[in-house]
Design a protein around this nucleic acid. Structure first.
Length: 566
RNA sequence: CGGAGCGUAGUUCAGAUGGCUAGAACGUGCGCUUUGGGAGCGCAAGGUCGCGAGUUCAAGUCUCGCCGCUCCGACCA
């Protein structure tokens, strides 16, 4: 490829609002351009890199026994209604109508579509298991796109769906996919950690994320020194170390407490540690039910765990008006003690207590009245929750199995989900015929990789101050060749070297511009980030200068030596 | 959806208190010069100042509405 003909030029300046290195470099090097927020053009360099990533993903998926196909991007809305995901999908479904008023969802994920295509066939246990996948555009109406390609509203995803006869068989495939993912990311040059996580609106009981450690990532997970435990902060479990559970219970006491409404205000006023305070967070679910989450003061409520415990689809914080009018309590002074007696008749309220409360005696906290607090509050004696469960958010420094947990940040580049019978029981006729002639639902899993996000993550990991430093397997062009000189001789030689390399199947980007200074060409090589740089100039004589992007040294080689090196 | 801010040339930006015939740099085109780390000189093209109302003798500048975008949060993989 001649640079002079390449669509998409390098530019000096990044968009003023770009903050992430990957976005700045991909823009400057002419890989991508933003259309509207969160929607991108992939220019020739960008699409070549994307295709190289796709090729590796495809090779490994095929090797793992999965089969590529493709589904329509417009999903009949009927299907989403069948699984009730028109209501429960965590992202706002983008909908379109055709001229006959038929309704469609723009696919954000495709479980229903794949179940639908499978049930068009009469499948016997003999044909199972199978795993089908696609590369296709996904649409998510993100409230806030950010970080260039890291969080977008439209992107290419590889999504795979496995169909097994039962859980035992499924677990083999789940492991197969996990291993496949590890191999894919390794081939792409990314070091991933497999992190336990929550499936959210996908459904199912368990899932894992593949996370690349990065300070700009949005995934927070807890890990320990030896890496034997890795879990998203939302699902991480951990010990509640004892505070003073062997202390004698003292009598409950109500005191004046003129203070602000924060936890800190309580600590200051009573001169007692946060761990002795009771934290009360009031939520409302989709049916209008109130849920009072109660925790030891030094823990935060974990909405994901809480949702599972109370089987709620969505949770929101209660408003100050609701706290006063429905519960007859006071924001900042809520207490589980006797709150049921105060609550307005007909209002449904359940108390969920975190297990940490059992570790503390004689705690303090609000009294459901403005500027009044209770001292010596004791779990079991002064209040009893409807549910006792783990509803706390993991945090840096807590312990699990005698090992300290640390918080790490990373970018989620892929995930694997157990779906079980979630979809095949909600959708009619998603059945195969088993050995004994009976019809049974499929046991499913699904597996996703965000291609654009993976691309951006590779750039985050492989760059220096001058530009990208891409590994050969993903670089748009393996070799970046430049010719320097007044006359046409170096250009003609470079032309012939390019042809030779291309005949050997090596991608070459040849900077054939005659009206640009050498400095500008060198700067572009570094920016575009091809792994190998070749220079032909009057100084190189009948040889070719060879340099790796990541190294300083150059050497002069013959054409034959060059082919050896590549 | 809550809070803050921005929208002027392809890009990055300047245009304080209304006086604009709207500028600079980079980039682009042409000419000369130059060829090992983003060279120099000259000329030129390029703008409905996001859109729409309003105030005013006069609006890029002030007011209102809308649209778009960014950041923080909420939400989300």
């Amino acid at each position: 490829m001649r640079y002079s003909k390449l669509f998409g030029k390098t530019v000096r300046e990044a968009p003023s609002d770009a903050s992430m290195d990957s976005y700045k470099l991909l823009h400057r090097a002419g890989y991508i351009r933003e259309s509207t927020a969160g929607r991108f053009f992939f220019l020739p360099l960008g699409i070549r890199m994307q295709q190289k990533i796709i090729k590796i993903v495809k090779e490994e998926m095929d090797r793992a026994g999965a089969q590529e196909m493709v589904s329509p991007v417009l999903h009949p809305l009927e299907l989403w209604k069948e699984t009730n995901r028109t209501n429960t999908a965590g992202f706002e479904l983008m909908r379109v109508k055709d001229r006959r008023d038929a309704e469609f969802a723009l696919g954000g994920t495709a479980e229903e579509m794949f179940v639908d295509v499978v049930r068009k066939f009469q499948i016997s246990y003999k044909e199972m298991p199978f795993n089908i996948y696609q590369f296709s555009s996904k649409f998510r109406d993100e409230l806030r796109a950010r970080g260039g390609l890291l969080r977008v509203r439209e992107f290419i995803m590889k999504d795979a769906y496995s169909f097994d006869i039962d859980e035992v068989e499924f677990k083999k495939e789940y492991k197969n996919m996990g291993d496949t993912y590890s191999r894919i990311f390794e081939r792409l040059g990314l070091k991933t950690t497999v992190v336990e996580s929550d499936g959210g609106y996908i459904g199912g009981d368990y899932c894992h994320e593949f996370v690349v450690d990065s300070p700009i990532g949005e995934t927070n997970y807890l890990t320990n020194d030896d890496g034997s435990y890795n879990a998203h902060e939302e699902v991480a479990t951990f010990d509640r170390e004892d505070v003073n559970s062997s202390d004698e219970m003292k009598p409950l006491q109500e005191v004046d407490a003129v203070r602000g409404t924060t936890m800190e205000d309580g600590v200051k006023l009573h001169q007692m540690p946060l761990s002795h305070q009771i934290k009360d967070v009031l939520f409302v679910d989709e049916s209008g039910r109130f849920i009072l989450a109660v925790l030891r003061g030094d823990f935060d409520a974990n909405e994901v765990k809480l949702k599972h415990v109370v089987k709620a689809v969505t949770l929101r914080h209660a408003t100050a008006e609701e706290i006063r009018e429905k519960l007859h309590s006071e924001p900042g002074f809520i207490s589980p003690v006797k709150i049921h007696d105060l609550t307005e008749k007909g209002v449904s309220l359940i108390i969920v207590a975190d297990t940490s409360l059992k570790t503390v005696k004689n705690a303090y906290g609000g009294a459901n009245k403005l500027n009044k607090d209770l001292l010596n509050v004791n779990y079991g004696r002064d209040y009893s929750p409807e549910i006792e469960a783990d509803i706390a958010m993991g945090k840096e420094g807590c312990m699990k199995d005698k090992k300290k947990l640390f918080m790490k940040k990373g970018i989620e580049v892929g995930n694997i989900f157990q779906l079980g019978y979630h979809y095949t029981k909600l959708m009619k006729n998603a059945l195969f015929t088993d050995k004994d002639g009976s019809e049974k639902p499929y046991y499913m899993g699904c597996y996703g990789i965000g291609i654009g996000r993976t691309l951006a993550t590779i750039v985050e990991k492989y760059h220096d101050e001058r530009g990208m430093t891409l590994p050969p397997q993903v670089a748009p062009y393996t070799v970046h060749l430049i010719a320097i000189g007044k006359d046409s001789v170096p250009f003609e030689r470079a032309e012939s070297v390019m042809k030779t390399l291309e005949e050997k199947g090596i991608d070459v980007l040849f900077d054939d511009r005659t009206d640009v200074s050498p400095g500008a060409k060198f700067a572009d090589v570094d920016l575009i980030g091809s792994p190998y740089r070749l220079v032909i100039s009057p100084k190189t004589g009948d040889k070719i200068e060879f340099k790796k992007r990541t190294e300083k040294e150059t050497k002069l080689v013959t054409e034959e030596e060059l082919l050896q090196l590549l």
